[in-house]
Write a protein that binds this DNA or RNA. Structure first.
Length: 218
DNA sequence: CTCCCGATAT
DNA sequence: ATATCAGGAG
């Protein structure tokens, strides 16, 4: 496990690598962002961004999703994976928005997670990106990077990872750091081919060194 | 825990 | 061919 100074060094370094890290899901309001994040489960942002322009042109409001047959919505998002459950969730989500939230996305995380298809991670993204609340959404990248670097333990659940990050990172930096961790994971510390040989954090990364030795590079 | 699932990288 | 992708519901 990294100590306090090492964690500070990690935050500084990824800050230099990805100073402008931000949400890469294209959206122009909280409602579109919520739909995009629901769609992004087990799919790349790039793919979601290919589908949403047409989707957001056709569906402007929760009512638009409610008034279309399920099969038609499924077809509109088919290119993204898990399309049947996502289509069903989006229709339920929009139903709740109209019936219980006046057609608007709620700002409170405890309300967000009540929406169909919205779990803790999605709620954190919406609260943080759409409403500027401090939050750390632990997705596949944040989890992998945190475990590889030794910010948390390998056996930690995603909830434990989130708590650890909130404890070790100043609250004012939660949102930007969260996005930098994602960029670091997405473009550098990648799942399949991590760029260990050219990583500025290799010296303090146990997993990185282990990988390098395994390949005879260290 | 399993299931959902097409697109893309390796 | 297989692993992975801004996970969540049952």
């Amino acid at each position: 496990m990294l100590n306090k100074k090492e964690i500070e060094y990690v935050l500084l370094t990824i800050g230099e690598m990805f100073p402008e890290a931000e949400c890469e899901l294209t959206h122009s309001n909280p409602f579109e962002l919520t739909i995009a994040v629901v769609l992004s489960a087990q799919a790349t942002d790039a793919l979601v961004n290919k589908v949403t322009p047409n989707l957001f042109t056709k569906y402007k409001s929760p009512e638009d999703y409610i008034h279309v047959p399920l099969e038609e919505l499924e077809n509109d998002i088919k290119r993204i994976g898990l399309f049947r459950s996502k289509a069903k969730n989006i229709k339920k989500l929009c139903q709740s928005l109209v019936e219980e939230y006046g057609g608007e996305i709620p700002q409170d995380k405890s309300e967000l997670v009540k929406l169909a298809g919205v779990g803790r991670k999605t709620a954190n993204v919406v609260a943080s990106v759409a409403f500027g609340e401090p939050a750390i959404a632990v997705d596949t990248h944040v989890e992998r990077v945190s475990k590889r670097l030794g910010i948390c333990r390998w056996k930690d659940t995603v909830l434990e990872v989130e708590k650890t990050l909130m404890r070790k990172i100043p609250m004012e930096e939660w949102s930007i750091t969260h996005h930098r961790l994602i960029f670091f994971g997405r473009y550098h510390c990648k799942a399949q081919s991590p760029q260990c040989p050219q990583c500025p954090l290799l010296e303090l990364c146990r997993e990185g060194k282990k990988r390098m030795k395994r390949r005879g590079l260290l």
